[in-house]
Write a protein that binds this DNA or RNA. Structure first.
Length: 335
DNA sequence: AATTCGGGGGC
DNA sequence: GCCCCAGAATT
């Protein structure tokens, strides 16, 4: 299909049926685009919206964000996951203020040097913030192309990325690319969904090779991935009438820089109080929570009153575990 | 090229 | 339970 024809179909459909009321679409502000794109990396739109709104209230522009304290930046990301993105966004703001006079650059080579901005986000910022003719390839675009052209390339195999990028660049129009790029994402998210795609409502149905062959749901092809391992983690629950001991985790590894129950490398000589399970994308964590005395814990500790726990960006499984504990009862039995 | 980074939605 | 999500950085 000619590239111009493809672009016209996508642009026309986006105008009539696409998403045009998302919070970060309202001003085409490069900072809004930057914040939303970092938040949207591997995170669904409906999850991001409330975080985006709170973020803009506290950090309304790139200068405000650059001047903010790390701890406060992390607190506003709490619960969103992939916490490195928050540090990247903070570092990106500082870079933009220092090197680009607080103006987000438009050129790809400059954007690519900014922390947290990879190939996809370069294209997204150039498309959405500047309406520039830049390609984007994300999970939605790969799935759409894989089905439309019945591609045999597994979408979760990085060696195949070049095929999808070549297609995306071939079809990227020289005008109206903001709407075209949005249309690709909207088609993938609302029509060409992973499961139960709405082919009856698809503007590309007559062009779709997997639809013609009645094999839409067999695509995209996917490379089989290994089973994820299970790791055991040992955590200390040290409490008294003053509160619970929390420790700030190191900046690298799981839950970077978040406050958490102190973690130890092996099971201590103590009573096992609680257990929990948590599944990450790449391993399962079997958490053992040992009842310890506050004096036996070491490290970067802080004793936090139970009533203040909500102020600390606790990892989700830890937050849920602590929420189940009846503090009055624990204090009475422990004295 | 493979691994490491969360957490929630949806079925 | 499992797959998926507006991926990037690291090894």
């Amino acid at each position: 299909m000619p590239a111009k024809e493809f672009a016209k179909i996508v642009v026309t459909w986006q105008q009539q049926h696409g998403r045009n009321d998302l919070p970060w679409q309202q001003h085409n502000d490069p900072y809004h685009v930057l914040v939303s794109e970092l938040m949207l990396q591997q995170t669904q739109v409906t999850t991001v919206i409330p975080y985006f709104e709170r973020w803009l209230q506290r950090f309304p522009d790139v200068t405000t964000l650059a001047a903010a304290e790390e701890q406060e930046v992390m607190a506003h990301w709490q619960g969103l996951g992939y916490y490195r993105r928050a540090r990247n966004l903070h570092a990106a703001a500082k870079t933009i203020v220092a090197d680009y006079a607080a103006q987000i650059p438009e050129q790809a080579v400059e954007l690519r040097e900014i922390p947290g901005i990879g190939p996809y986000t370069v294209g997204a910022i150039r498309s959405f913030a500047f309406n520039a003719p830049a390609a984007i390839v994300d999970g939605n675009v790969k799935r759409l192309f894989a089905r439309l052209f019945m591609l045999p390339y597994a979408v979760n195999h990085s060696a195949n990325d070049r095929y999808f990028w070549e297609l995306a660049e071939h079809y990227t129009p020289t005008s109206q690319n903001r709407r075209f790029a949005q249309g690709l994402l909207d088609l993938g998210a609302t029509i060409c969904k992973p499961k139960q795609p709405l082919c009856h409502a698809c503007p590309l149905q007559s062009r779709c090779r997997t639809y013609a062959n009645a094999c839409v749901e067999d695509y995209p092809k996917r490379k089989q991935k290994k089973a994820i391992p299970t790791k055991t983690g040992h955590f200390l629950l040290a409490i008294n009438r003053f509160g619970v001991c929390l420790e700030q985790r190191p900046a690298n590894g799981i839950w970077p820089s978040l406050w958490c129950l102190p973690e130890v490398s092996q099971a201590p000589d103590a009573e096992l109080g609680y257990e929990f399970n948590h599944t990450f994308s790449h391993y399962k964590l079997a958490g053992k929570v040992w009842l310890a005395e506050p004096a036996t814990t070491t490290g970067n500790l802080m004793q936090v009153p139970y009533s203040d726990l909500a102020d600390y960006g606790l990892p989700a499984p830890i937050r849920k575990l602590l929420a189940k504990i009846d503090w009055d009862e624990v204090c009475n039995t422990k004295q």
